[in-house]
């Protein structure tokens, strides 16, 4: 049985909950795995902070909470600061380099940054930053198959924005730090 525990954190309004929903749906409906999504519980629910979590498993998810994460997606400084301690050794950190600026020591983890919000703005809508991040996560952390993620995105966003979101996914998926 393989299990992947993902924590997604950011501000309210960034689509943190939606991205967890899309990720969970991609895994359980389109990748035929099992997943469990829970949202915004605990002290981090205060203020504008927002977090959600997804457990992806090849078998039924027994324990649905994320106490230690295999993957942390940080879309805000606060989310980064709060949840970096639960990222386990060898875990993958994916963060928005414009929103998480004060970095701590990243020993024992794999950290990968992307200007997700900036890329989203270049695509025309800041709101798709979460989708850019999902594309990045599909590539860099291989949390679900890119096809499943694309299908889940298409399924979860209003139809008139499907194309924009697909481009956002692609932008994140194709992003390569060396290009910057």
């Amino acid at each position: 049985m393989s299990e992947l525990r993902v924590k997604i954190s950011g501000f309210g309004g960034q689509g943190i909950i939606l991205s967890a929903f899309i990720l969970g749906k991609a895994a359980s409906i389109y990748d035929q795995q099992h997943s469990s999504m829970t949202q915004a519980y605990g002290p981090e629910a205060r203020g504008g902070a927002c977090s959600s979590q997804v457990v992806i498993s090849s078998d039924n998810v027994e324990y649905p909470l994320v106490d230690t994460a295999d993957v942390l997606i940080a879309m805000s400084q606060e989310g980064y600061d709060t949840f970096l301690p639960i990222l386990k050794k060898g875990g993958i950190l994916l963060y928005d380099i414009d929103l998480v600026e004060k970095l701590q020591c990243h020993k024992d983890i794999i950290a990968k940054g992307i200007p997700a919000t900036r890329l989203a703005e270049e695509l025309g809508k800041k709101i798709v930053a979460n989708i850019v991040m999902l594309g990045f996560a599909a590539k860099q952390a291989k949390i679900v198959s890119p096809k499943a993620m694309q299908e889940a995105i298409a399924d979860s966003v209003p139809r008139k924005f499907t194309e924009l979101n697909m481009r956002a996914f692609q932008a994140g998926y194709d992003y390569n730090k060396e290009q910057e």
């Binding site: 749906k25 409906i29 389109y30 078998d59 039924n60 027994e62 399924d155 979860s156």
Partner: peptide, 20 residues
């Protein structure tokens, strides 16, 4: 209700809610 993926009737797997 597009969060449903239409799947052919017989391919629905019986869900067991607890661990095996």
């Amino acid at each position: 209700q597009s969060n449903s993926r239409k799947i052919p009737h017989k391919t629905i797997r019986k869900y067991t809610s607890s661990r095996d």
